[in-house]
């Protein structure tokens, strides 16, 4: 439903979002994790066509660079700091954005009701609390029921109850078949909320894989192996035994990145091929530690 192919962006001689590719399927939630400045918001702006970029983004088959308006009609976006016109009321705001999104007044009313703001419909946006503004932004996001949702740091500043509501909102979207991209520092809920996780570090894709690897305590666990002279032959042996393993060679060390539950199969395959392991290192907490290093203290 949402597809990014070789998306990159250079800002002068400074920060660069390096080419990255991924898809978000209907009914799937992908969490983008990264430190401040890692490139999460830049990536999201590329997906929305708000900034120029190299590569291609399509939403439901519509190319964002060629038909940004058409693509954005298929995307509901929750900005990191939702900003609306302060002098409009909640109802007027939803009506205004509803008109832009081609939603009816009834759709607008349902959206306001769904986020629990119906009692505040006549209140000016300027008089709303941060949490209420967040809910208003969710109501706007729902207008026209777009099949793709992009949420940029949605949990920032929310209390525990609001975060629960937000989690329920995301899961409801998943059940409803929406493709959801979620940028977050909200690491502890990633395994239960997202299907896959994409870790960005300094503008580079650091990891893309199942979010269950976070729950399992590794992500690919990373095995580093020093072998008895059969290093070159070991790669194909491992990849034949564990299809999702990624094997790279660094000097005399072979690095194997795989799902935690596949570690044993890697060792068995090497033994069966007569390759002796002289030494090994295991980074079983790889993803969780990466995520923690980019996600700040919320993990702990």
């Amino acid at each position: 439903m949402l597809s990014a192919m070789g998306v990159s962006r250079q800002f002068g001689k400074g920060f660069m979002l390096e080419p990255l590719s991924f898809d978000v399927e209907a009914g799937e939630v992908v969490a983008v994790v990264g430190a401040n400045g890692a490139g999460k918001t830049t990536l999201i702006k590329c997906l929305l066509g708000l900034i120029r970029f190299n590569g291609q983004v399509t939403v439901g088959g519509v190319d964002v660079s060629r038909d940004g308006k058409g693509a954005r009609k298929l995307i509901g976006y929750l900005p990191q700091n939702p900003a609306f016109h302060q002098d409009l009321t909640v109802a007027e705001t939803v009506k205004f954005y509803g008109q832009l999104r081609g939603a009816t007044e009834e759709d607008g009313r349902s959206a306001v009701e769904a986020v629990g703001l119906i009692e505040h419909a006549d209140k000016q946006v300027g008089a709303l609390s941060g949490g209420m503004k967040q809910r208003l932004a969710l109501a706007v996001l729902k207008l026209g029921e777009p099949p793709v949702q992009i949420l940029d740091e949605p949990a920032t500043g929310l209390d525990v109850d609001a975060r629960k509501d937000l989690r329920a909102f995301i899961l409801e979207g998943r059940r409803g078949g929406k493709a959801t991209l979620l940028s977050t520092h909200w690491l502890e809920d990633v395994p239960s909320t997202a299907d896959r996780v994409l870790v960005l570090k300094d503008g580079k894709l650091d990891f893309l894989g199942p979010s269950s690897s976070m729950a399992n305590g590794g992500a690919g666990s990373r095995l580093q192996l020093r072998l008895n002279g059969h290093t070159a032959a070991a790669g194909p042996v491992i990849e034949a035994a564990v299809s999702m393993a990624k094997v790279t060679q660094e000097g005399e060390w072979l690095t194997v990145q795989c799902r935690p539950e596949d570690k044993g199969r890697v060792l068995q395959a090497l033994a069966a091929a007569g390759i002796t392991i002289l030494d090994f290192r295991l980074s079983g907490q790889e993803l969780i530690s990466r995520a923690a290093s980019v996600g700040g203290e919320e993990l702990h």
Partner: peptide, 17 residues
């Protein structure tokens, strides 16, 4: 300045419109 430009242009709306 108000930050509403991002909210507006993330809608089905072109800068020209």
């Amino acid at each position: 300045d108000r930050g509403t430009m991002t909210t507006l242009l993330s809608q089905p709306l072109t800068p020209t419109e």
